[in-house]
């Protein structure tokens, strides 16, 4: 149960950092997405039933601090976590490249989903140049930072459950 209790403050702080400290790293129209990196890293480390509550919590916290309708990020995070749980074991990948590769794909999916919801809610959609302007900076920064998050959460997971340590890096 400790993983659920740890997830709440961790994701809450991550959502707040996304709107404060992480804005210092923004360039063009994009920036790092700390909550997404945590959700993805956690999904790579633990079982689906433990990563799903984090996906819902993280999504709600993130949307509460945004113009995006609450629940939008939660829904796409849940789908991302399910996809990771289904796909990664099938591919059998276990190395350092996995978290950056996954985060690149997932950042595109996440941004496109949220932008689609915003489009339905009445915001203008942008062209291919807008896509590069908004999504590319975010995915580069996420790919650069995700290993730090992944290793940190790996350590946290090992600390919470010393007997069932699971890592892509072993």
């Amino acid at each position: 149960m400790a993983v659920y209790y740890v997830g709440f403050p961790l994701l809450l702080m991550a959502a707040i950092f996304d709107t404060t400290l992480m804005t210092l790293f923004r360039f063009w129209g994009g920036g790092p997405n700390l909550v997404l990196m945590i959700i993805v890293s956690w999904a790579l480390l633990v079982d689906l039933r433990e990563s799903l509550p984090w996906a819902v919590m993280g999504g709600i916290f993130r949307d509460l601090l945004s113009l995006v309708p609450t629940g939008t990020s939660a829904l796409i995070f849940v789908l991302i976590v399910v996809a990771i749980d289904w796909l990664i074991p099938k591919l059998g990948w276990r190395n350092l490249v996995v978290p950056p590769l996954v985060i690149v794909a997932v950042t595109v999916v996440y941004d496109l989903f949220v932008l689609s919801v915003l489009f339905i809610a009445g915001r203008p959609i942008f062209d291919i140049l807008g896509f590069f302007y908004v999504i590319v900076p975010g995915l580069i920064e996420n790919a650069a930072m995700v290993l730090v998050i992944y290793r940190t959460l790996g350590g946290l997971n090992a600390f919470l459950r010393p007997t069932s340590r699971v890592s892509l890096l072993e």
Binding site: P53, G71, A74
Partner: peptide, 28 residues
């Protein structure tokens, strides 16, 4: 596992729909 997925999707989608409709604005 299936139940957990369905629950998580349902909760997220329900919150999203209520948020778009403005029903949960006071809670937000």
């Amino acid at each position: 596992r299936g139940t957990a997925i369905v629950m998580a999707v349902f909760i997220s989608a329900a919150i999203m729909a209520l948020s778009i409709l403005g029903t949960i604005r006071p809670v937000e």
